[in-house]
Each structure stands twice: as structure tokens, then as C-alpha cells.
């Protein structure tokens, strides 16, 4: 394999990988505060893309994306307040079924609002064919936007969770909800906040990746499956694990095309998910002792 080809695969892999990682982090934030997997996470990504495309008719690009992210955050909050918050007995299974229902609901609503056509934001810089070279490999500038935005989101989230008091309160909820409640933290608000946050990062990712991948009413589902695989692979709830696992899966997928037919690309992701669930259900970067303490 030439260096040029190697770099080309690597860049493709890192691009897929950072998108998967962001979706996985969205899963993790909600998992940490509620103990559930929000299967509507992929729909937040779709909404981010669709809403920015709509707002672009009226606003310049940066404002359109900002507004789309804010609206999606609002939708995230509304979902939590309408469907999760007032549950008297919020069993894990019940909440998961609710999120699956919501994901179908959002998808069908999007089909009615935007129709079934593919849409895309314009490229932030240049157009569909502008590229620059890294060691002979040609890369679209949009790829850097995706990788850069995802990287910044990971750093910002880490600072938020480590250094701000709200972030620390959210982590306290994740560590032990009862203890956090006893310390005077309103765990219900933390749950709402976790939906807002994961809706926001999903929407932002959906907007920056839209020029590359296009946005269609149903493209959240595929992303949710990949993101879920990555979240499991990195260890549920572990955001840095998700980043590592996302990049790993993306790079494996990209390089796999050089040895096996492209048609097997998705089979690889699913096989990895199955192997991990059998061999290390607590993920590559988790520990079995930690996993034992969790409800799900």
C-alpha cells in the first residue's frame, strides 16, 4: 500500500470515526444520568442537519446552524419533560421503549415536514470538488470541519464535566443518583440537561456532516446503530472511551475495503458489536467490576 493510499484511508476512517464518536457521546451523556440508551439520538443528528438547511433560506450559515442546534436542544428538553420526567416508575425497559417510539415519531414527522428527498448544506468552504493535498492524498476541507468540530466538542464537554459545577453535579448523578439527591442536587433537572446537551451535540454534528453525507429524514437510524456500537465498544458511559472506539471503528471500516469487498463494511461493525457483547460486555475501556454496579 502506498503512503498516499494509506493516508486516504486514514482520513476517511477518522472522518467516519469522529461522527460515530459524537453520536456515541450523545448516548453516553444520557446513559450517565438516567441509565438508559436514548434510541432517538440519531434523530437529533438528522434534525440538526434538516433544521439548518431550512433556516439557511432565511439566515446566514453560522446563524442557521446555531439556531438549528438551539431548536434541537429545545426538542431534546421537550422530549424529556413530556415523556420521561413525569414517569412514576421509570424502569429502564420502559424508558428504552419510549425512546424507540420517539425515534419513529420524529422520523415520520420529518418525512411529513421535509419529504423524502435528500438535502444538504452547502460546503462551508469551496464546493463539492475543492480539495487540498496531505502527503499526496486529496482531502475535502469539509472533512477538517467535521474532525475539528468533533474534536472541539469532546474537549469542551470534558472541560464542562470537570471544571464547572453543573458538570460536576451531572457526574455526581452518574456516579450515584441517590447520593446526589441527598447532596441537594436536583437529579430531575440534570436528566433534562443531559437530553439538552446530547441533542445539542448531535445537532451540531448533523449540521457539519450534512455537506458530506447528505441529510434525509431517515438517516438517523443508521448512525444510531453505529454510535451504539461505538458506545458499547468504548464502555457505556465512558466518553473518552467512545472517542477512541469511534476512531478505531472508523479506521477499521475504512481499511477493511482494501481487503474485503465494500459490501461487508457494515457487517464488520455489527460483528465487532457482537464480539464485544459476548467477550467484553463492559467495553474495551471499561471494567467488569464497574459494570456490575450498574442496573443496565
Amino acid at each position: 500500500m502506498t503512503t498516499e493510499l494509506f493516508i486516504q484511508y486514514l482520513v476517511a476512517g477518522v472522518t467516519y470515526g469522529s461522527i460515530y464518536a459524537i453520536v456515541a457521546i450523545g448516548f453516553n451523556i444520557i446513559y450517565n444520568t438516567t441509565g438508559i440508551i436514548n434510541f432517538a439520538q440519531g434523530e437529533f443528528v438528522m434534525l440538526g442537519g434538516m433544521l439548518s438547511i431550512t433556516f439557511l433560506h432565511y439566515l446566514p450559515l453560522p446563524l442557521a446552524i446555531t439556531l438549528a442546534v438551539l431548536v434541537t436542544m429545545g426538542i431534546g428538553a421537550a422530549i424529556e419533560m413530556l415523556f420521561i420526567r413525569w414517569l412514576k416508575d421509570p424502569g429502564v425497559l420502559r424508558m428504552i421503549i419510549i425512546t424507540i417510539g420517539l425515534s419513529i415519531l420524529i422520523r415520520e414527522a420529518a418525512l411529513h415536514v421535509w419529504g423524502s428527498n435528500v438535502r444538504a448544506l452547502p460546503y462551508f468552504f469551496g464546493n463539492e470538488i475543492s480539495t487540498f493535498a496531505i502527503f499526496g492524498a486529496r482531502v475535502s476541507p469539509q472533512v477538517l470541519w467535521v474532525i475539528g468540530t468533533c474534536g472541539l466538542m469532546v474537549v469542551a464537554l470534558n472541560i464542562f464535566f470537570q471544571a464547572t459545577s453543573i458538570g460536576r453535579e451531572m457526574r455526581a448523578c452518574a456516579a450515584n443518583r441517590v447520593a446526589a439527591l441527598l447532596c441537594g442536587i436536583d437529579t430531575r433537572n440534570m436528566v433534562t440537561l443531559s437530553f439538552v446537551l446530547s441533542a445539542g451535540i448531535g445537532a451540531l454534528a448533523g449540521a457539519v456532516m450534512s455537506p458530506i453525507t447528505y441529510t434525509q429524514y431517515d438517516n438517523g437510524t443508521g448512525l444510531a446503530i453505529k454510535g451504539f456500537t461505538v458506545a458499547i465498544l468504548g464502555g457505556l458511559g465512558n466518553s473518552l472511551g467512545a472517542v477512541a472506539a469511534g476512531l478505531l471503528l472508523g479506521i477499521i471500516e475504512a481499511f477493511s475495503v482494501s481487503v474485503v469487498p465494500l459490501a461487508f463494511q457494515d457487517a464488520i461493525a455489527i460483528s465487532i458489536l457482537l464480539i464485544i457483547l459476548f467477550v467484553r460486555p463492559y467495553g474495551l475501556f471499561g471494567s467488569s467490576a464497574m459494570a456490575g454496579l450498574k442496573e443496565f
Binding site: T2, L5, Q8, Y9, V11, A12, G13, T15, Y16, A137, I212, T213, Y214, N219, G222, E253, A254, F255, V257, S258, P261, L262, A263, Q265, D266
Partner: peptide, 20 residues
């Protein structure tokens, strides 16, 4: 000859392979 998924969102890796 390559077959891709109908839901494929990025095919730059396989294009790199063919281009090579």
C-alpha cells in the same frame, strides 16, 4: 467491481482503492 450499501454516506475509502 464493488457493491455498496444503499444507505452509504461516504465512499471515499473505496474510491481511493479503485483510483489506486
Amino acid at each position: 467491481a464493488e457493491v455498496y450499501d444503499t444507505k452509504a454516506t461516504d465512499l471515499s475509502a473505496v474510491i481511493a482503492k479503485i483510483k489506486a
